[in-house]
Amino acid sequence: MSTLIYGLITGFLFGFLLQKGRVLRYDKQLGALRLMDMTIIKFMLSSVIVGMVGVYLLQDLGVAKLSVKSLVLGPVIIGGLIFGLGWGLLGYCPGTAMGALGEGRFDALWGILGMVVGAGIFAEAYPWLTATVYTWGDLGKLTLPQMLGVNHWVVIPVFIICAVLLFRWFDKKGL
C-alpha cells in the first residue's frame, strides 16, 4: 500500500510541476511539435537527467535495483509512431492530457479516451504482438554505460553538460 501512496504523491508532484512549468498549455505543445518552443523539451530533458541521477544514486546506495528491459526495435518504432500521431492530432501527450483535464480543459478527455481504447486494443492484440512485433530487432538488455564499457558516473556528467549546453543554445535562439 505504501508503494501506491508514494506513486500517488509523486504523480501529484509531477502534475504540479507540469502545471507550473506551463507545459500543459496547448501553445507550448504546438510549439514543441513545430520545434519553435523548447519549453517541453527542456522540461522533459531535465526530468530525464534528474531521474537518471536519482536511479543510479539509489542503485549505488543499494536502495533500488535497476531493472533494464530488453530493447526491441519493432514495438519501440510502432509505439513511437502511434504516440507521435496521437500527440500531433490531439496536442497532448498522456501526462499532459491528464494535467490539462485537471486544469479544466475537457478536450483532453478525447486523448484519455483514446489511451483507454488503445490499452484495450493492445491487451487484446498482445498474444499476436508477442509472436510477431516483439521479435523484430531484439537487441537485448542494453544501457549506454554498458555499451561504452564505462561506469555510469562517467556518462551522467556528459549528459548533464550536454543538456546545459543545449539549454543555453535554445535560450540564445529564443526557443
Rank of each mutant, 00 (worst) to 15 (best):
T132V: 14
S47A: 13
I49Y: 01
L113E: 06
L30R: 14
V53K: 00
V158P: 08
K141Y: 02
V155L: 02
A97L: 07
G137C: 11
Q59V: 12
Y6G: 04
L109G: 01
Q29P: 05
K141G: 02
I160N: 02
L71R: 05
A97I: 01
L17C: 01
L175V: 10
V150S: 05
L101P: 01
D171L: 08
L35F: 15
V63I: 15
I78E: 07
L35S: 07
W153H: 01
L18G: 00
I112H: 09
V76W: 09
L89R: 14
S2C: 09
T135W: 07
G120V: 02
T130N: 04
V164T: 14
F43H: 10
S70P: 09
L81E: 07
K28L: 05
G62W: 03
I160H: 04
S46N: 15
L66D: 03
L30C: 04
L4G: 07
I9Y: 06
T39Y: 09
I160R: 05
E124N: 09
V133L: 15
M147G: 03
L13I: 08
T143M: 02
G7L: 08
K65T: 10
E103K: 15
L139V: 10
L71V: 13
K141F: 05
F167R: 09
G102H: 11
R34K: 09
L58R: 04
F122D: 07
L90P: 04
G91V: 09
G174Y: 08
G120W: 02
